[in-house]
């Protein structure tokens, strides 16, 4: 499980961000002492740092440079300033990505996932298993009962999301939004088609009634 460190002085954002990231399967630590952030980062050894720019004591740029001088850990700068100068400053000081507030959570999550994937290139979560169905992300297949079926990009994304949140309902809008974040601008009907195909493929490998419809709410596995 990836560990993310949140460096943010606004208490509400800090706790809510922590809740959100934990919901999406990340382990979170939040710094609340801003006098020695770089050493705290070093001590906690997270996989990624979310760094605010406007901080008490030292600003984010300083902290960014300090962290960079000690380690190569990925840093995403999160700030409310969105001028080119700020972006340039962050990049020059070694930040890997730059997101402006008020960020949309889906965008934030997508950026975090992309950066982690790029940095660690692990086969972490390359396979997910739930109720006897094995989803492998690298070759985009599902397997059950000794049979396999290939999934399209959209089907893979949908099933991946549902399996990540097994036992929880994902609304249709959330599924569409997640697909939009991967540049697949599908509409409501396309989602229905994709879900139906996914069900057929699951049936073809002998899994029935795996993907449940919660009327008026969404889907879950």
């Amino acid at each position: 499980m990836f560990k993310i460190m949140i460096v943010e002085d606004d208490a509400t954002i800090r706790t809510e961000l922590k809740t959100l990231l934990e919901k999406y399967g990340y382990l979170c630590i939040a710094a609340d002492d801003f006098t020695s952030v770089p050493s705290a980062v070093e001590a906690a050894a997270p996989h990624l740092v979310l760094l605010d720019i406007n901080l008490p004591h030292f600003d984010g740029y300083h902290i960014c440079r300090e962290i960079r001088s000690r380690s190569q850990i990925p840093i995403i700068v999160v700030t409310s300033r969105n001028s080119d100068v700020d972006e340039l400053m962050s990049m020059n000081l070694g930040a890997d990505d730059f997101i402006t507030k008020p960020y949309h959570t889906q965008i934030l999550l997508a950026r975090i996932a992309a950066l982690l994937k790029r940095t660690y290139q692990t086969d972490h979560e390359a396979q997910l298993e739930h109720n006897g169905v094995l989803l492998s992300l690298c070759d985009s297949t599902i397997a059950a009962n000794g049979q396999t079926a290939e999934l399209t990009k959209n089907e893979l994304k949908i099933l991946h999301l549902l399996m990540q949140h097994k036992g929880a309902i994902q609304s249709r809008d959330e599924l569409i939004n997640a697909l939009w974040q991967t540049d697949e601008f599908i509409d409501d009907n396309t989602l229905t088609v994709n879900i139906n195909r996914l069900r057929k493929k699951l049936e073809s490998i002998g899994v029935t009634d795996y993907l449940k419809t919660k009327r008026g709410m969404g889907y879950m596995v």
Binding site: T12, I13, T19, L20, K23, P102, H104, T105
Partner: peptide, 13 residues
């Protein structure tokens, strides 16, 4: 933008 961001996060959670 900071309060807007925190309000959005509260909604998300």
């Amino acid at each position: 933008k900071t309060p807007i961001a925190s309000a959005s996060l509260v909604y998300e959670n």
